[in-house]
Design a protein around this nucleic acid. Sequence first.
DNA 1: AATTTACATGCATACGTATGCAGATTAGCC
DNA 2: GGCTAATCTGCATACGTATGCATGTAAATT
Lengths: 340, 340
Amino acid sequence: MRAKQTSFDIAYRAGVSQSTVSRALRNSPLVNEETRRRVQEIAKELNYKVDRNASSLRTQLSGTIALLLFEDPTNDDSLINPFFLSMLGSITRASAKKGYDLLVSFQQMSNDWHADFEDTRKADGIILLGYGDYTDYEEKLVQLIKQETHFVRWGADVKGLSVVSVGCDNFDGGYQVTEHVIKNNRQHFAFLGGVSTGSPEFLDRYTGHCQALKDNNLKVDSNLQIDAISTDESGYQAAKQLIAKGIKFDAICTASDLIAIGAMRAIQEAGYNVPGDVAIAGFDDIATACSTSPALTTAKQDTVLAGEILVDKLLQLVSGEEAHTQLMPATLVVRKSCGS
Amino acid sequence: MRAKQTSFDIAYRAGVSQSTVSRALRNSPLVNEETRRRVQEIAKELNYKVDRNASSLRTQLSGTIALLLFEDPTNDDSLINPFFLSMLGSITRASAKKGYDLLVSFQQMSNDWHADFEDTRKADGIILLGYGDYTDYEEKLVQLIKQETHFVRWGADVKGLSVVSVGCDNFDGGYQVTEHVIKNNRQHFAFLGGVSTGSPEFLDRYTGHCQALKDNNLKVDSNLQIDAISTDESGYQAAKQLIAKGIKFDAICTASDLIAIGAMRAIQEAGYNVPGDVAIAGFDDIATACSTSPALTTAKQDTVLAGEILVDKLLQLVSGEEAHTQLMPATLVVRKSCGS
DNA sequence: AATTTACATGCATACGTATGCAGATTAGCC
DNA sequence: GGCTAATCTGCATACGTATGCATGTAAATT
């Protein structure tokens, strides 16, 4: 039972050649219906499985997608950002749906990831995932392109390079949320999230936020914008800084749910009521957002859809088709943290 | 640049044979220091990467671990249970640390997963992850053993089979949490979580819970135990059922944080104060547990540690060493939902 | 009946690497 | 200097599959 079965073993039992076995199992039309059935039956009986290494070596196709998850170097927490964890889940599902295996790998930006996966033939294509300014690794993207590696990435469009990016309309998301809060009669807005530094996503969200304020004749006070990375703790600290400034505010928009959650904690600890005294809005719609108290109003990024789109586009590239950058809508999810 | 480089190309440039290249790159002591250096230099220059398929075919080793994540069939939610998502993250990290790639795959219990991964040589070993009664798939475990597949699983020990399981001391976790709540002067305990049906984990937690009650001369009222699966919604429904019964209770222990979160919502909606009127405790310590209001007191399963242990044990098996089932401690995390 | 066509199978080989074995070169020894 | 030992390199082959090409057979066409 244990000595591994090969296609030759099947061939022997079926009284045909190895070629025929291979064809029969791949449902080649070249092989007779009757023969095919017999071969497949025997293969099943002997519990034969095609050796993927041999198969991949021969076909130069691995049936595998690699997912490279970049760690946020500013965050030494050993846990993964729940938004990306959710993306990971949906990408796993999406690739399974397409019959592809998923190879998951954490990477430091600084590593040699740009050369690895497809050149080793471990994967047919690569999905790049992670917050961060792509200028951090633009040269590596250039190299990927030069190598003709098939890849797609999550994030904002990369100008000047023919890279397929799938990202959320962060500007619009920021705009929508802010507008919603304005409608709840808030006038003095703070914004928590790294803008000058770091991810273009956060910047876009902030830009959308500011535009909504302007369109509603509200003032943008840059003193009320405080940098934060996407962690609970960073949001907490930023909110404390904000309070310490002593400037009046009745609403906080944030660049991510985690920031919002941390901020909410700080605000409540300081004795304010949410949303009574201060409205707080998030971004992402992570699972936790439903469970905060009050539940978090936020801009949802549809990770399930995003995962499917990323996988679809990548497989298009793999099969030689064209694929293009796509912007996904962000949708406002109204809960309790900003009033009705 | 694009035509893929092979070891023959390197050999040609270095003026040596392909064998020598292979040896040089694998740091074989057979090859001269000087030659090795030159070969490695050229390989780097040409951006050469070993073809993993060819390599694996030859060595019969893939350098890959497969993670099979079983879906809870009772939960058609397209999202993954946050506890397992967290395990996924830590396992990914742990295997990366050991130099292994991780192949992630969702599976239905009913599939042919038991034969797939190692026989196809895609992976050197398998990690099985998922709630559920192993009797659901005991026959498949038997087959895995018969095939001499290397695998470890998360969960309670499987009696009668030589299977390496790594699991949390659910009994003790349930005991600890309950004892803590008792110390906060509660007397009338309800328990939410599927006991008669489904996962042995839940049953163990419940058993620990009951033991703590008994040891403190408190009554176990089976009318106050209500089944629930590990989702927010299920916990919400169970809590509503509980309230509907009209039996007095001042504490709810649950089989998972998600259940607790749902229950908390139901209890608060019904106008009770947590923890004033009702103490609520969870199990798992998922990320969300810090962010509920009040923050959830719970029994923590250390997923980071669990991931490392699982990977370590698996690699021991792969390298022919013995490995044994291990029980991990659950640790009480006191927050606000049960009083001090 | 001779020829073409269609269909089914087998032969031989390539994918790129790793390694047992033999050979070559140099050093070491009496 | 002739021998063994030590060190390094190359040759040849195997891993298990997929597929181009040739072959063989039966049916269809003329």
